[in-house]
Write a protein that binds this DNA or RNA. Structure first.
Length: 783
DNA sequence: AACTAATACTTTTTT
DNA sequence: AGTATTAGTT
């Protein structure tokens, strides 16, 4: 042990023994491996990026060039050289997923779990951590709560009401977005430009922003923007605190640097003024979050911002075949403001990028659905196929189609787990139990489920709370002692207060998961969903169960709540073999063998709104989006466009995207005369297949047959229930088919309906709400 | 306070 | 077209 410690600064002898693997410090464990081991896996540029440890470094890492590998190896290298302890490395990412991935991969490199990297996390998670330690310096208590967007809007609404501002003309959302924008740019209320203040309520925006900040402090709360902006203020106003962190962080690493906003940039720069060992990894060609405050300029200006900076370009692409890479490069070359990289590959040319025009979005879904079935027949794995759309409304056509085909798919992205109504309601209950002064949460659930405490009651509570300057909960406690409320609400409110008091009393004696269940049960919250027989109610109950399961990973209720707002994201269950459906934005950082890119229509892929709002800059960002989409593909990419699209009710005719014409012709193949397929009434599309040979071999049919409880061959693989957004959508009917025309059925996605026609295992159902749909029988249950 | 009818809104998403 | 929120009614 001591021998290893003594050898810290030197390279370890190769014959270093594998003793004390559990107890040895990470750096020591890392040293057991010969240094060359991990460095040899890198190409020269990557290796240079890993070994250039001192001074500012910008790694321009094009798509698929091993960006994460560089970051993780660099961390391992620093540790292995003994240049820093794990706690002296700051590594920031944008998403929890990226942070987890990095932690995992560093762990793999140095052979063990990285318990000791306390400063590897998202900007926000690290921001909270620092702010809790110095809360008083930014006018908060260390126990401050982090507001989610819902709470934020609610608070702003109250503010607008108090100021008598017409919410119709000046929606709370707009102000919330403006405040968010200012925070992203590092602007505190007093610094908001006069002109921008006039964009809301005749120039009152700045004052409202200031009032909002005051309310936050009163509530002992911070919103997401504050986690950065207040942190920045902390560093700016307290030199001693800043210096402490400057000294602590010997090395800084930043992932996805092209996505940083001004506040993040200023924060990073302050910290980097310590020893200057900052390494930013990014790709200006993948900056797609400009609308959210990201500044491409940050990456373009790196050399000026960090004097003496080195820039290393990673241009060897290990992901895509030649044609795909060439098509993507040709496209992105049309952008003006870029640092410029030339991606190249040593791999094969592969197949050209296919382009196919469709007459409308339904045909688009049908064409892609057929292609996927074809691929599946050829033995492709569904999980290696992705459909990347520009806007989420495009997903509907695909979901409908896949449900009809019985093709398993999963939606990635979508509303995040903790953002869902039921999860927020449940956590609001837990929050109030722990902290009755949390007005926003209390207000959220005071009448959920309905307990007769509506607007009128809430209004008088607010009045009393304001008059006495006490939290709502306290006001409620006082009010039930008075005659102000009518008997019924008074009783109801008294019961609620008593219940919360009782739950609070149980915190120390009861296990936190049991307590959570008890709260949801006794409050009537679970009962509320059980009583509702809607397609969503069941999945909401499932989600609540999932929430309880998730809680088990924490020691206390408080510990759980601390993490829930920042860290909890949709659990994307891996493993099950499904087609991936997501937006281009959420596809960044992922890769698939086969990628379908539907909706390359003028007005949708260069999105009209983006063009209108940001002109050329908007167009370039849209082009980067297209580039991100193409570069997700390893072997096969297909672009489609639809001439007609039913957007919001109206049929709109669109031209093919200008980006299609910008693709270098040598690497593109236009799929022609396939246009004939799918013409004619869509409901016959499966019927026509009955006569085509091979119908009984289509994967959809086989899947469906394999799923039939009886009469299927025992060896047939059983399909897992289809899930959407992580929730159970269809479980196979246990007691077999035997459904008859005219029967009432229930479908998890479409709701209730009546069977109109039966064709083998495929049912045509007239749904009460969703209209006529074709579904596979195993997706419905009898009612 | 709860229900129903009318009206507005619809890019992308993290934390 | 569809939903989500709001205003008006019971």
């Amino acid at each position: 042990m001591s021998k290893i410690r003594a050898a810290k600064a030197a390279l370890p002898p190769p014959e270093c023994e594998e003793e004390n693997a559990e107890t040895a410090p990470i750096s020591a464990r890392a040293m057991r491996r010969p240094a060359a081991h991990y460095l040899e896996a890198l190409n020269p540029e990557q290796r240079e990026a890993v070994e250039t440890l001192d001074g500012p470094l910008l790694v321009l890492a094009g798509a698929g060039t091993g960006k994460t590998r560089v970051l993780t190896t660099r961390i391992a290298h620093i540790l292995s050289l003994g240049r820093a302890r794990p706690s002296q490395i700051l590594a920031v990412t944008f998403t929890n997923k990226a942070a987890r991935e990095m932690k995992h991969r560093v762990g793999e490199l140095i052979g063990g779990v990285v318990e000791g990297m306390p400063w590897l996390g998202t900007f926000h998670a690290i921001g909270v951590k620092i702010m809790r330690r110095h809360a008083e310096l930014v006018d908060l208590k260390p126990s401050f709560t982090v507001l989610d967007t819902d709470d934020q809007i609610r608070l702003i609404k109250q503010l607008l009401q108090a100021e008598n501002i017409d919410e119709k003309r000046w929606p709370a959302r707009l102000l919330a977005a403006m405040i968010d924008g200012w925070k992203n740019r590092g602007l505190r209320p007093e610094r908001v430009p006069e002109g921008e203040s006039f964009a809301f309520a005749n120039g009152r925006a700045r004052d409202l922003y200031a009032a909002y900040q005051r309310r936050l402090k009163e509530l002992n709360a911070a919103d997401f923007g504050d986690l950065l902006l207040e942190n920045l203020r902390l560093f700016q106003e307290h030199q001693d605190v800043l210096e402490k962190y400057q000294q602590r962080f010997l090395f800084m690493l930043v992932d996805e640097y092209q996505d940083t906003n001004v506040a993040q940039y200023l924060w990073l720069r302050l910290l980097a003024q310590g020893n200057g060992n900052i390494c930013c990894v990014g790709d200006d060609d993948q900056s797609i979050y400009g609308w959210r405050g990201a500044e491409v300029d940050n990456i373009l200006r790196f050399e000026t911002d960090f004097p003496g900076a080195r820039i290393i370009r990673l241009e060897r692409n290990y992901r895509s075949t030649g044609h795909i890479l060439a098509a993507a490069s040709g496209l992105i070359a049309h952008n003006k403001g870029r640092l410029g990289k030339t991606l190249r590959t040593d791999g094969s040319e592969g197949e050209k990028v296919t382009v196919e025009g469709c007459c409308d979005d339904e045909e688009e879904a049908r064409v892609i659905g057929e292609d996927i079935e074809q691929l599946q027949r050829q033995g492709h794995v569904l999980g290696e196929i992705a459909i990347l759309v520009r806007a989420s409304f495009q997903m509907r056509a695909f979901e409908d189609r896949f449900i009809t085909l019985g093709l398993p798919y999963r939606v990635i992205g979508g509303p995040r787990f903790y953002e869902r109504q039921e999860i927020r309601d449940a956590t609001a209950y837990f929050d109030v139990t722990l902290n009755p002064a949390n007005d926003l949460k209390f207000e959220r659930i005071i009448n959920t489920p309905r307990r007769g405490l509506g607007e009128a009651t809430l209004k008088s509570l607010h009045q009393l709370a304001r008059a006495q300057s006490v939290p709502l909960f306290q006001a409620a406690r006082l009010m039930i002692e008075t005659e102000e409320l009518k008997p019924r609400p008074r009783k109801s409110l008294a019961d609620l207060i008593a219940a919360f008091d009782r739950w609070r009393g149980l915190i120390d004696t009861m296990g936190h998961t049991e307590l959570a269940e008890l709260i949801l049960d006794e409050s009537g919250y679970t009962g509320m969903w059980q009583a509702e027989r809607s397609p969503q109610a069941q999945s909401k109950l499932e989600n609540l169960k999932e929430l309880i399961r998730f809680m088990e990973e924490f020691d206390t209720l408080a510990g759980f709540l601390e993490h829930v707002a920042l860290v909890m994201d949709a659990q994307t269950e891996e493993g099950a073999d499904r087609v991936n459906l997501m937006t281009l934005h959420s596809a960044k950082g992922l890769e698939f063998d086969t990628v379908f890119l539907p909706g390359w229509d003028e007005g949708l892929l260069p999105h009209q709104r983006s063009l209108d709002e940001s002109g050329t800059a908007g167009l370039e960002e849209e082009r980067r989006l297209a580039h991100v989409g193409l570069t997700r593909a390893r072997k096969f990419a297909k672009i489609t466009f639809a001439q007609n699209r039913r957007n919001h009710g109206m049929w709109q005719t669109a031209l093919p995207s200008r980006f299609i014409d910008e693709l270098p012709i040598d690497h593109v193949e236009v799929a022609e005369d396939k246009g004939l397929r799918g013409y004619g009434p869509s409901r016959f599309d499966s019927a026509e297949n009955v006569f085509a040979d091979g119908f009984y071999e289509t994967p959809g049919w086989q899947r469906a047959r394999a799923n039939r409880p009886r009469g299927s061959s025992p060896s047939a693989p059983r399909r897992e229930p289809l899930t959407i957004e992580g929730t159970l959508v269809a479980a196979s009917t246990a007691d077999g088919a035997g459904l008859a025309i005219g029967e009432r059925i229930f479908h998890q996605k479409f709701g209730y309906g009546r069977i109109a026609q039966i064709d083998g295992n495929k049912l045509t159902v007239d749904f009460d709400k969703a209209g006529q749909k074709k579904v596979v029988d195993s997706f419905v249950e009898r009612v």
